[in-house]
Write a protein that binds this DNA or RNA. Structure first.
Length: 486
RNA sequence: CGGGGCGUAGCGCAGCCCGGUAGCGCGCUUGCUUCGGGAGCAAGAGGUCCCGGGUUCAAAUCCCGGCGCCCCGACCA
């Protein structure tokens, strides 16, 4: 009995975080390995989460004036080369198609690692006047980056994402857009994923290849490693110049547009897993759960079964009308306990147990995936009660994730030794002064494996900014957040 | 690309050292009994032992050569 229980349980996080992560994904049936190295199959349970994310983000993009479009998978190889930094950054990780229809192609085609180039070439056709601006587009698509080492959801050769691409008449407008979308991501990640993020600027070493400035959102996972949850780039006029995206201004002059791009991907699913889940399996924030409530009917005899199932279905109908996503698990031949374990592993936020005793009492047993055991509830007003539970769990997940992050954060170490010790002993974010020298970044990485995740926005800082670089003791140019990262 | 590990039933593994009819657990199918925290019994289905050579009367097992995957390091959403 003991052994059987063990064989069904996940490796505990404390024992081996990486094994736990992989086993959880298998057990919750979120994804599986493909026959092709480095690629993943997203299974229905995982894809449903992605669909919830897409729906929420897509609405937010449209609310901010963006339109969806679709640009092709294949990009002429020469396009990448038009922006010097861009080709240097992406060439090593592209997949290239050399043959089609049994013949060698005149020009090889790159499978898109991102679409700035093809979009730049199209924008140059479509944009003539300042009256055409701004152009605010987004596309949902797959991209391919030939990675050396992969990990389900966090880094795979092919992944799903959205990439927003915009063109503006002025630098200020482009910067505003870049920051606006960073804010949209932040709202989404806090309100839906329940993941607290730090926003800020990337340093030169982590700037997007071809961008003028890159901003990012960084979250801290349960193992105290940082995960980049999305990026937003002010591309300046770099791609506009490379692809001649120019327009006539109101006073008749010619200028190149200022463009932006921003993206976030299925990696967020990995971030969600590593932020909230526990040794029993996935914990899915209720706003993103395809099934917020699962009803498990309990019965002994056939007549009970009929009655209980009927009541369960009626309850489901009622709750659905009340705006909840509900599933009745009427499978036969599986004991209720087995169903409990299964739905817990899959991250369903709420379980309702409905049996003969409940029918007599006009009650139902509620079990929460996080934040408390079972309680008996009356049937009256249950939908409203559960909507309240959804909100409460959603807030609770964000709050506890924020508390955990702050617990794993060191602000302003007193010495270089304290800084290094913290990073080397499995600590999370460290806020410390930085003189701005890239060589310091490299040296810190060499010794501690930690990098500057972000130069944080003001609101994430506490107290007076450090005056000295933690590494060199020189005057600090920036306050930086350091961590080991995925 | 460097280091480590592993390829045997859907999944996890044993068997290999010491060659001789391919096994165990979970899962799956059918039936009966069960059902408020991972059910029990009974009967079944399911395998080119990663691939290709070689040695041998005989290879999952020994030898040679490939391939693949996972984990740990250098790059990356």
């Amino acid at each position: 009995m003991r052994r059987m229980a063990d064989s069904k349980a996940l490796t505990p996080r404390a024992q081996d975080f990486s094994a736990w992560y992989n086993e959880l994904i298998a057990k919750a049936e979120l994804a599986d390995y493909s026959p092709v190295r480095g690629c993943m199959v997203i299974r229905p349970n995982g894809f449903a989460i992605w669909e919830q994310m897409q729906a929420a983000l897509d609405g937010m993009f449209k609310d901010t004036g963006h339109e969806n479009a679709y640009f092709p998978l294949f990009i002429p190889q020469s396009f990448l080369a038009k922006e010097a930094e861009h080709v240097e950054g992406f060439a090593p990780e592209t997949a290239v198609v050399t043959h089609g229809g049994g013949k060698e192609l005149e020009e090889p085609l790159v499978v898109r690692p991102t679409s700035e180039t093809i979009i730049g070439s199209m924008f140059s056709k479509w944009i003539q006047s300042y009256r055409d601006l701004p152009v605010l587009m987004n596309q949902w698509c797959n991209v391919v980056r030939w990675e050396m080492r992969t990990r389900l959801f966090l880094r795979t050769t092919e992944f799903l994402w959205q990439e927003g691409h915009t063109a503006h008449a002025t630098e200020a407008e482009a910067e505003e857009e870049t920051l606006k979308m960073l804010g949209v991501y932040r709202t989404f990640q806090e309100q839906y994923l329940a993941i607290p993020v730090i926003t800020g600027r990337k340093t030169e070493s982590e700037r997007f290849a071809g961008a003028m400035r890159t901003y990012a959102l960084e979250a801290l996972m349960q193992d105290n490693k940082a995960l980049q949850m999305g990026t937003s780039h002010n591309l300046g006029q770099n791609f506009a110049k490379a692809f001649d995206v120019s327009f006539q201004t109101a006073d008749g002059a010619m200028d190149h547009v200022w463009s932006t791009s921003w993206g976030c991907s299925t990696r967020m699913i990995g971030g969600m897993i590593m932020t909230h889940s526990d040794d029993n399996g996935l914990v899915c924030p209720p706003r993103l759960a395809q099934r917020q409530v699962v009803i498990v009917p309990i019965h002994k005899t056939d007549s009970e079964r009929g009655q209980v199932l009927e009541a369960a279905n009626a309850l489901a109908t009622d709750l659905k009308a009340g705006g909840l996503r509900v599933h009745v698990d009427g499978r036969e031949g599986i004991k209720p306990g087995a169903k409990y374990y299964e739905w817990e592993a899959r991250g369903v936020p709420f379980r309702l147990e409905l049996g003969p005793r409940d029918l007599t009492n006009r009650s139902v047993m509620l079990a929460r995936r996080t934040g408390g055991g079972k309680v008996s509830l009356g049937m009256e007003g249950l939908a409203a009660t559960l909507r309240g539970e959804v909100d409460q769990m959603q807030r609770g997940l964000l709050e506890s994730a924020r508390a955990r992050r702050e617990g794993g954060t060191l602000r302003h170490p007193k010495s270089k030794e304290e800084f290094v010790d913290y990073l080397e002993s499995g600590g999370g974010f460290v806020y410390a002064g930085w003189c701005g020298d890239p060589a310091v970044e490299a040296a810190v990485k060499e010794q501690t494996k930690a990098t500057i995740r972000v130069l944080p926005d003001t609101e994430f800082r506490v107290g007076d900014a450090p005056t000295r670089c933690i590494w060199t003791g020189q005057p600090a140019q920036y306050e930086a957040v350091w961590a080991r990262a995925y």
